[in-house]
Amino acid sequence: MIPAVSTIGSSLDFFVVVAIALFSIGCYGVLTRKNMIVLLMCIELMLNSVNLLLVTFSKYYGASDPQIFVFFIVVVAAAEATVGLSILIMAYRSNKSIDIELFNKLKD
């Protein structure tokens, strides 16, 4: 029915592996980096890996719904980055540093 022009199908497994690798790299960044901005960027990386996985399975099943979910994830990521960065600016004003360890002060 549909001519098999698209041979990307055999690469879908590789895309799943790429998504998992991106998620692990983001996880490593969140665990080790102390700079708050880099931390937020690693969270963006993890969100993007999830998007990649959703698009891969959308291609596999030929469904549009996962791509709508990706759209909403992008929306939420934008809102999250905005609020996170303004919290960061507030923390920088009171501490003159964006070291994540400074949030230990919240315990006292």
Partner: peptide, 21 residues
Amino acid sequence: SLVLGKNYVPSNPNVGLVENL
């Protein structure tokens, strides 16, 4: 479950276009 490549059947390629979404 990483057998997506083997089981893949070419589906509608217009899924990701603006009109559908």
